[in-house]
Design a protein around this nucleic acid. Structure first.
Lengths: 136, 136
DNA sequence: TTCCTTGTACGAGTTGCATCGTACTGGAGA
DNA sequence: TCTCCAGTACGATGCAACTCGTACAAGGAA
């Protein structure tokens, strides 16, 4: 944590002009993530509980397969549920340590914690990648 | 599945005289398992939900590390809970497809479905083996 | 300033799960 | 036959999670 260096940086991260996606190549420009467990604090029970819900499994899988270096707001996932329900599920994922959330003005970027998860639970994300939804 | 061969076998499996443990080297002698999902029916969500409970994680890990070729009754695990609670957790594990249960007269043998789990969810059991209980 | 958008906070209703006491079943041994 | 024993079945309780509607906060654009 640099004491004062980041304050002069622009408010948001670099944005691809064509896609509107935010890039993570320059990590110094990013706003601080919302509260989350550190890598050493990740609990297998909590991670598995978070992944035992098909909706959250879908979110994690979509992030894993389609958003490796880019984060996306909640609306990007195309889930037809009330906003308050999505808030609940994304917070569950963040508190279990599966995703990192950053605030960009209005929207909130969701990024999978690939490195942390692979370090603590190697092979787990491969199981998520192989998953298929129950019926459809 | 041999059509009629197993009917003439003795009631129980081979038992080690020194330890009292039942061996699975002669599978033809075993009684039929209790109802369980077939390998192709295993659902990742259900398996992860079953493993999200620390008590069940402990049971699966103990079976994985200490009972590879042998099954054990519920009492063997040394869990200080009422019997009705243990029935609930072992049934949850069986219905999710993690363990196989066979009736030997009075007691019921619990065996981890290592081959099925490795085939459907490779690497999952390695995560269970690395798990450590929360505090103690 | 006014409106739109993204998402949170709060609360209520509902469901499901964990826990456990009690009664019961069915085999094994004295 | 009588008793013990491993485990089930049933029902009650309490708690946590899922779902959702509504109200609210805050940035961005007209």
């Amino acid at each position: 944590m640099p004491p004062t260096a980041a304050t002069a940086a622009p408010a948001g991260p670099a944005v691809d002009a064509a896609t509107g996606f935010r890039s993570f190549t320059e990590s110094a420009e990013l706003p601080e993530p919302l509260p989350e467990p550190a890598r050493a604090e990740l609990r297998l029970e909590a991670v598995l509980a978070a992944l035992s819900d098909p909706l959250r499994l879908y979110v994690v899988r979509k992030l894993l397969l389609e958003a490796e270096r880019i984060d996306h707001p909640c609306g990007w996932f195309g889930i037809d549920r009330p906003k308050s329900s999505l808030t609940h599920h994304f917070r569950t994922l963040r508190e279990a340590g599966l995703i990192r959330q950053r605030q960009y003005g209005l929207s909130r970027g969701n990024q999978l914690r690939v490195a942390d998860l692979e370090a603590r639970f190697p092979g787990l994300l491969a199981l998520v990648a192989d998953w298929r939804p129950p019926a459809g």
